[in-house]
Design a protein around this nucleic acid. Structure first.
Length: 569
DNA sequence: GCCGTTTTCGGCCCGACTGTTTTCAGTCG
């Protein structure tokens, strides 16, 4: 079913870690990490590439990697991996996750003190033998102790919604600091990844020391990890636990270079640095330099401009071919917030939402939308006060009545209908025909013939859209037992639409599946699935993911004006 | 381990910070 790309990527990541501890060349380690990342991001099945003999055409995959991949696909084993794992116990690999500990130190501790796991490490700290190692000292051991503490309280990556909320709160607070001018998010948050590790913020100002001082005094700071002239790092308390926020301060004339640099991704930056090198230039967070002379740095326009490149949307900066395309002048123009004309998945208080129909319309108007699809649950969704046929008929009348009064916005008559266990739809054709839009979703039987059921729903002539097609929850639910590739193919065959559910914990389809859908020319609808007013704001996360998948205006149906949307449906 | 019409060998992004060092190594982002 699922292809083996991610599985092999994981092996390569572990191999990279193990080689690092073995003390192999850092370049080899990086090569494995790169190969792993490339595999993770690949939208085609590696097995397919092997079949076509195109595996080593992928940048980052050479002979060595190709052989290992082929061996694994053929035999389910990777000899090199198993050899290395024999030498490097799993307990040692784990130590790499301790901040401040790297391969070199772990290698040394293993060789000289026979440290094989976290317990051993704690022992050699306590008995003082670690401190006596060459190059060690009181402070280093103290640091490792702190690292262990952080590691043991380590947080998972946080959902983007949480990260954005914290970042905006901190940014508001920072703006009150004296002498601060620009402030921006950076890192994976600015690139709108679905989950975020640390929150990165960049600012400019004359007196770095003062700004950092203000920063670490943030009301919810529980621990200051670093406090310097250009850099501060704090742990703050949140409802979900402790989160790390990093702040960097740079001079005004380096703001663009720093923003570019700290936004990343790492892979994108490495490629850019390669271009600089070819031109005999040097690029850093302070600017672009020819020899000693700084030739750019004030803005991202300036920095990218040196290389004849446009300012890439942050979401595209992943080294997924964007730099090469831009050099050829072929960078696609991806969807923007202003392109979105409406929300295609909203619940009202007719089922399990809290807003009245009027309130939904009012909020939509404020957002500048020209339509909103009311998609309340069907009767099978009892837990969500799903609508009986009578209630649905009543809601349809109600919406018609309301629409005759509304100006500047229209509510679409819709439903989020359950796909039942046998693949049928939980609503009569007679009623479906009265609706403008039909979203069909799986809400029960997550392991029961899900692929077949969804395909049956796609075949149904009155179904327009499949809602949250994989059912995954980012905070911890695998999703249905579903073959997404088959769903995408079926959607293409029957000319149906797949949803990008913009609710931050769903973001379903995800960026990888969206790319596949786009390749098969399957149209996407973005809906927030909101049940309350605040949830309309989820659109920005859906858009972020759509942009990460390089979707353009044409790939998304809710960029269409009302009349065109209705005729497409 | 990957990569290349200047190279099939010798490079591989760059800088801050820290702590251990008499000039640099390790870690991080």
């Amino acid at each position: 079913m699922e292809n083996k790309n991610k599985e092999i990527a994981k092996l390569f990541y572990r191999l990279a870690d193990a080689l690092e501890i073995k003390g192999e060349s850092g370049f080899k380690v990086v090569a494995y990490q790169k190969a792993a990342r490339v595999l993770e991001d690949l939208t085609t099945d590696v097995a397919e590439l092997v079949a076509q003999g195109k595996l080593s055409e992928i940048p980052g995959i050479g002979r060595g990697m190709a052989e290992k991949i082929e061996e694994y696909l053929k035999t389910g084993k990777m000899t090199r991996y198993e050899e290395v794992m024999k030498e490097v116990p799993g307990g040692l690999l784990q130590l790499l996750e301790i901040p401040g500990l790297g391969g070199r130190t772990i290698h040394q501790m293993h060789k000289e003190l026979n440290v094989n796991n976290l317990e051993d490490l704690k022992r050699v700290i306590e008995d003082g033998s670690l401190e006596k190692l060459y190059g060690m000292g009181k402070k280093k051991v103290e640091n490792i102790k702190k690292g262990i503490e952080l590691f043991e309280h380590a947080q998972e990556r946080m959902p983007i919604y949480e990260a954005m909320t914290i970042a905006e709160e901190v940014i508001d607070y920072l703006k009150k600091a004296e002498g601060i001018s620009h402030v921006s998010t950076a890192g994976s948050l600015r690139r709108m990844k679905e989950t975020i590790g640390d929150i990165d913020i960049l600012a400019t100002g004359r007196d770095g020391l003062k700004i950092i001082k203000h920063f670490v005094a943030f009301p919810r700071t529980v621990r200051v990890l670093a406090e310097g002239e250009t850099k501060g790092s704090i742990l703050i308390t949140t409802e979900a636990g402790e989160r790390q926020v990093d702040l960097r301060i740079v001079e005004e004339d380096s703001y663009g270079a720093a923003l570019q640099y700290f936004t990343g991704s790492k892979a994108h930056n490495i490629k850019l640095r390669g271009l600089a090198k070819d031109k005999g230039l040097k690029i850093s967070e302070y600017g672009v330099f020819r020899g000693e002379k700084k030739i750019a740095g004030r803005s991202e326009e300036e920095v990218y401009g040196v290389f004849g490149l446009p300012v890439f949307p942050p979401e595209m900066r992943e080294d997924h071919g964007e730099i090469e395309l831009a050099l050829e002048g072929k960078l696609p123009v991806i969807v923007e917030p202003a392109d979105i004309k409406g929300d295609l998945h909203v619940h009202s208080n007719w089922s399990d939402g809290v807003m009245t129909l009027e309130e939904v319309a009012e909020h939509g108007k404020q957002l500048g939308y020209s339509y909103i699809a009311i998609c309340d649950h069907s009767q099978a969704a009892r837990y969500a006060h799903g609508l009986s046929p009578d209630r649905l008929a009543e809601e349809i009348k109600e919406i018609d009545k309301l629409n005759s009064k509304l100006k500047g916005i229209k509510l679409l008559k819709g439903i989020e209908v359950d796909i039942l266990g046998d693949g049928t739809i939980d609503c009569s054709e007679e009623l479906l025909k009265k609706l403008d839009i039909v979203v069909a979703s799986i809400h029960s039987g997550f392991k029961k013939n899900v692929t077949e059921r969804i395909i049956a729903a796609l075949k149904h002539p009155l179904v327009n859209i499949i809602g949250h097609p994989t059912g995954r929850l980012i905070s911890g639910r695998e999703g249905y037992d579903v073959d997404v590739d088959k769903i995408i193919e079926a959607a293409a065959e029957y000319g149906k639409i797949l949803e990008l559910n913009a609710y931050y914990d769903r973001l379903d389809l995800d960026e990888f599946n969206l790319k596949k859908a786009k390749e098969k020319r399957v149209l996407i609808s973005i809906g927030t699935d909101t049940h309350y007013a605040h949830g309309f704001g989820m659109m920005r996360y859906g858009l972020g993911i759509a942009r990460r998948a390089w979707l353009t205006k044409k790939d998304i149906i809710n960029t269409l004006p009302l009349s065109k949307l209705l005729s497409r449906l």
